[in-house]
Design a protein around this nucleic acid. Structure first.
Length: 424
RNA sequence: GGAGAGGUACCCAAGUGGCUGAAGGGUCUGGCUUCGAAUACCAGUAGGUCGGUAGUACCGGCGCGGGGGUUCAAAUCCCCCUCUCUCCGCCA
């Protein structure tokens, strides 16, 4: 959510900022109108309330003095009715203001290049060299079925398209990757592990920006008005919602493994085979709460922490900065880490590391207090995948495949695979 | 699912329709005591938010889990919702 005071003070600047990512009417003019109207009505009703309070304080004295209050009470009753009327007006203005504000995306960081879509993303760096196979490399779905560790067929039977059954060493590999990532983040990179609920309420979904605009992308549980989380970002960021965090606690680093649930409603026909685009997939997420002045250096570190996973697994990747056209609704700046996927013949997104500045903090009301003499300020929130587990498994299978259909297990994972060196 | 008890400020907690920014503790700060500390004692401080308005000054509005209602006036009375706890039932 954008800062209403900032919109009031620098309307043209904020408007131009949002326009860098989307043209057309996104409601900011309406915000300006509503804000002015709200303050006007507020001034009127607050003056009346003051009169009501002052008079109320006199009533006990008048009664004690034995005076007749019927005329006064009649007058106050009218005042009371008028206050109620104006209060209703204020709350309907505020409701509309909030609705409009919740639908406006974040202002991109000025460094972010203007663009239409992912074609305008900028490559920042590359690591590793895609392997030259001396044979015809297979896609991970063929490798997985060949080794009898992935079963897409039977997943279709029990759930439908975009689900996968992992079996035997496939299941173990998924589990190994999760544990490897969590251990790296917690033991070496300073994150605290969280295991959150996988269903959350509307408030949480609104706090991180999925609601109200993207309700259709989410799996919904009507029995309790819950949503299945599309990412651990939602429960973990909202963990600190409505709190004032003591300044010396910052920065806070959390990491969490969760399954993620997405409808993928707009992706019909895309990535229909394999593990790349599923209704349910595992992900290890990193979430940070920082002071405003450190958030961008923390974004660099966060991205490095995600990259470290791929370095240790020995899989080539690159890092891109998303253009304004590809940027998520809540994000001010996003780096994608893309892993080399031989079957696609290109780099595929495996992590998305974003700085939301105070956009989510304002929605979820997450603040911090530097010290006794400072007022509470909004924190900056960041998050990034560290990494998407299914895509990591897919990348391992493809990049480490051998001509006979077996797959070498990356050294870093062997302790998690009972010392095995190969899946065959 | 059934029954009950609760939600008051950083924590605990009192609260009778009006004089309640809200008793009393604790915490915190200073003093006193002491070789130093603890204890006791004395004093002081009390959150947030929205406006006037640019402000850590001043004035006002709001705020006792959330939302409605009754009333001239609600922490207090009524209704709905929500969360926590206890017991019963069911259950991994």
């Amino acid at each position: 959510m954008l800062d209403i005071k900032k919109i009031r003070e620098d309307f043209d600047g904020v408007k131009a900022g949002v326009e860098r990512r989307c043209k057309g009417d996104f409601g900011i003019d309406r915000v300006k109108e509503l804000d002015a109207k709200r303050r006007e009505v507020l001034a009127e009703v607050e003056a009346l309330k003051n009169k009501q309070n002052v008079t109320s304080r006199e009533v006990p004295k008048l009664k004690k003095a034995g005076e007749d209050t019927t005329a006064l009470f009649a007058e106050m009753k009218q005042l009371s009715a008028r206050i109620k009327e104006l209060d209703g007006e204020v709350s309907s203005i505020e409701e509309e203001l909030r609705t409009v504000l919740l639908g406006i995306p974040n202002v991109p960081n000025p460094q972010v290049q203007i663009g239409e879509d992912d074609n305008d993303n900028v490559e920042l760096r590359k690591w590793g060299t895609p392997r030259e196979f001396g044979f015809e490399a297979k896609a991970h779905w063929d490798i997985g079925e060949g080794l009898d560790i992935l079963d897409f067929e039977r997943a279709g039977k029990i759930s439908g398209a975009r689900f996968t059954v992992y079996k035997g060493l496939g299941a173990k590999l998924e589990r190994a990757v999760i544990n490897f990532m969590l251990d790296l983040h917690t033991e070496e990179q300073g994150y605290t592990e969280i295991l959150p609920p996988f269903m959350v309420n509307r408030d949480a979904m609104t706090g991180t920006g999925q609601l109200p605009k993207f309700e259709d992308d989410m799996f919904y549980v009507p029995a309790k008005d819950f949503f299945l989380i599309p990412t651990a970002e939602v429960p973990v960021t909202n963990l600190r919602a409505k709190e004032i965090i003591p300044g010396d606690e910052l920065p806070i680093y959390y990491t969490a493994y969760t399954p993620c649930f997405r409808k993928e409603a707009g992706s019909a026909g895309r990535d229909t085979r394999g593990l790349i685009r599923q209704h349910q997939f595992n992900k290890v997420e990193m979430v940070k709460f920082t002071t405003p002045e450190t958030s961008y250096e923390e974004l660099e570190k966060l991205t490095n922490d995600a990259e470290e996973v791929l370095k240790r697994l020995g899989i080539p990747y690159r890092v891109v900065r998303l253009s304004t056209g590809d940027l998520g609704f809540s994000s001010a700046m996003t780096y994608d880490v893309e892993v080399w996927m031989p079957s696609y013949g290109r780099y595929v997104e495996i992590s998305s590391c974003s700085d939301f500045e105070d956009f989510q903090a304002r929605r979820a009301n997450i603040r911090f207090k530097r010290d006794k003499d400072h007022k509470p300020e909004f924190v900056h929130t960041l998050n990034g995948s560290g990494l998407a587990v299914g895509r990591t498994v897919a990348a391992i299978l493809e990049n480490y495949q051998q001509e006979d259909g077996s797959v070498v297990i990356p050294e870093a994972l062997r302790p998690y695979m009972g010392g095995r060196e190969v899946i065959k």
